[in-house]
Design a protein around this nucleic acid. Structure first.
Lengths: 239, 239
DNA sequence: TTCTACGTACGAACAGCGTTCGTGTCAAGT
DNA sequence: ACTTGACACGAACGCTGTTCGTACGTAGAA
């Protein structure tokens, strides 16, 4: 076996210009690109480093570890949100708009939402901004302090979970337009429909409604459910 | 350096009796014990095998892979739930009781709930049983079909997420009694309180209510919120 | 009874991961 | 010109899930 001829040096037109401009922002931006195009599972330190034409060890000068990198990614996504000025007359629509926007921003970056799920309490600046504005909107609705405090948790959780569910329906590479999740949902409907009806009568009978996916109807349903439920708790007393 | 004398054979009283009785159930039971005592992160194939006095490769004759093992663990936990006979007069309390029970069973096994979070749609027999009974309870409440279908998703998600939050408050080894999560919550309250008030006025001012943890009040609040919200959607129409 | 076949057991190894170590290298300060 | 210090980075460590090849032990066939 003869090995092909190689030349370890440069031929002059090499694009291997040493990028001495490695920075936190550049790393975050590159990592986000990897998540967008290949999904969260494909995101690892070596992959990001390779995209930057360097080694994995180089990243650790700017980022403590992978967890911090994920936090930075999420913070960047949350930072892109437009935060409204709370208006007591329109607080419900403002809250729904904000949550829609937050979900869309998450879903726009592959299955990054899965990482958001792990961070149950907000600690990054932009995540705290989001919690702050949600609190402000609920308070603008005249809800009691404790109801707002409990409520913001439930609502944020629902938003993130919906984003996870949404993003899990399409493979990282594929387009994410309207109806792109249909094959996935059809598969689940088929599964539900094929179950033994004597043990799961309702699941089998309701396979259609259970897998219904008409635009954002499902998400909107949840938002209304949560906000109505929240208003219903307004009279609740806490010792 | 001299090595200590060893004898590769058996001295007769060895407890090394070859457990040729390796089985799926035994593996699941052992894995559950590992999760209970050391947490989900400590659960790996080698650890389970070691507990059984064998090698990791031996497990793959009974379990396809780690994902399947996790599914089996969850199914076992869901299988322990008592499912009520739906009574239209008491459906709300029945639903709340069932969800309380489900959450408690999850929390009783360390942070296993984190694994439940990944499985957004039920596929295992016992998980399907739970979905079936929840559907039955909501229908017993006279709610429209589509409201039940959407609602069971939101409610199940909340139950699991609450279990994750709850279990994340105590380390795997420590006891999980009342008030055991206090140091954790005190830490968060301190963090919220230390934030810049000019940027996060509401979070700082509401640090107390945001981290309030009086018994199951938080979970009960969410249950009532969801059920009230669901009832409020009863009149909703779907094209 | 003897031979054969097949499911089970399992040490060794592979590829991938996050992370650390030690060394190299460049640019600015003295 | 020399020193210094921050950044770059190949190599390696320990861990993971999983597969391979082989050995074993029992059950059925001859």
């Amino acid at each position: 076996m003869t090995s092909a001829p190689t030349w370890p040096g440069s031929f002059g037109t090499e694009p291997k210009r040493k990028k001495r401009t490695l920075s936190r922002e550049l790393i975050v931006e590159t990592a986000l690109k990897v998540v967008d195009t290949e999904g969260l599972d494909a995101l690892n330190m070596r992959r990001v480093a390779q995209e930057l034409g360097t080694g994995a060890a180089s990243l650790y000068a700017h980022v403590a570890n992978k967890d911090e990198l994920l936090s930075l990614l999420l913070d960047r996504v949350y930072a892109d949100l437009d935060r409204p000025v709370p208006d007591p007359a329109r607080w419900r629509e403002q809250a729904k708009d904000f949550l829609r926007q937050a979900r869309d921003n998450l879903v726009a970056h592959g299955d990054l939402a899965r990482a958001a799920m792990e961070q149950n309490i907000p600690t990054s600046p932009a995540a705290l901004d989001s919690a702050e504005i949600m609190l402000a909107l609920l308070r603008a609705g005249g809800l009691p302090e404790q109801v707002c405090a409990y409520g913001v948790d439930v609502i944020s959780l629902y938003m993130v979970a919906t984003a996870v569910e949404e993003s899990s329906r399409t493979r990282p590479g594929e387009p994410r337009g309207a109806g792109s999740a249909q094959p996935y949902l059809d598969g689940i409907r088929g599964f539900f429909g094929s179950l033994p009806a004597e043990r799961y009568p309702l699941i089998v009978a309701m396979a259609g409604p259970l897998t219904r996916n008409v635009g954002d109807e499902r998400f909107e349903f949840g938002l209304d459910l949560l906000l109505d439920g929240l208003v219903a708790q307004a009279g609740r007393t806490f010792d």
